[in-house]
């Protein structure tokens, strides 16, 4: 049991559905994940669906979210969160099923699950955290790594191709809710996640939100937030537009 080390009024800063006992969280300093999760928590609070949410988290940094919330949460295998939540939702349609996945889990090892869930218009929400790199395994190339970026498995620089997931999903599903957000625009991100959840609550079918997120650890910008956010808000944003698709 982890006893809370938070000041007594800390809960005012968090969504109600956050589990304070598991704070401080286990993500690296400066990581974008807690900001995505915080926006998700506020969206859940606003919709009043805490008791109905089934959250699936992938392997990769997203696994650290396994006890982030007071939400029923399952940690699955790398890339397998989407089918797990698909199976859950089919068996329990009154639940609100969320798959929380990194860009490696969603776009590489789990790509066929993602695209087929979209094709079948599964009534789940998939949140993909895009930081352009395999973070937990130590900075390898992801399908999202931008051209020329030097990473552990692309020491000469990543190739010129990268995945544009919203376009890909739109191509197979004309009705899906599709949007991209960014950690540094919290209000927008919260609104986007709320809309995406609402889409599921109204049985609207597949919902997909990609979130641009920072990884100072693997970007080599730890302790230099200006560099971190320059990369996120200039380089990443130029390649990955933040908008509703």
């Amino acid at each position: 049991m982890v006893e809370t080390k938070m000041p007594p009024d800390a809960k005012l800063a968090f969504p109600k559905c956050v589990r304070l006992e598991s704070k401080p969280h286990l993500f690296c300093p400066g990581c974008g994940h807690p900001e995505v999760l915080k926006a998700l928590g506020f969206a859940i609070d606003e919709l009043g669906i805490q008791k109905r949410v089934a959250l699936g988290v992938d392997i990769g940094c997203s696994l650290l979210a396994w006890d982030f919330f007071n939400l029923d949460t399952i940690e699955t295998h790398h890339g397998r969160t989407i089918p797990t939540m698909v199976g859950f939702k089919r068996a329990k349609p009154e639940g609100v099923a969320i798959a929380y996945v990194g860009d490696g889990g969603a776009y590489a090892i789990g790509m066929s699950h993602l695209i087929n869930a979209a094709i079948r218009d599964e009534n789940i929400l998939v949140i993909v955290v895009n930081n352009g790199v395999y973070a937990m395994t130590g900075g390898q190339e992801a399908p999202t790594t931008l051209p020329g970026t030097r990473v552990k498995t692309a020491p000469c620089g990543a190739d010129r191709h990268f995945v544009r997931a919203p376009e890909m999903i739109r191509n197979v599903n004309p009705n899906a809710y599709i949007a991209r957000g960014i950690t540094t625009i919290q209000v927008g991100l919260r609104k986007t996640l709320k809309e995406a959840l609402q889409h599921q609550v109204e049985n609207g079918g597949f919902a997909f939100v990609e979130v641009l997120s920072q990884c100072p650890m693997n970007w080599g910008t730890l302790g230099r937030p200006e560099k971190t956010f320059e990369y996120l808000e200039k380089t990443m944003l130029a390649a990955y537009p933040v908008k509703k698709y």
Partner: peptide, 12 residues
């Protein structure tokens, strides 16, 4: 996918 959907059904 089928195996993990099965897990989802069990969790439900």
């Amino acid at each position: 996918g089928a195996g993990f959907m099965l897990i989802g059904g069990i969790l439900a």
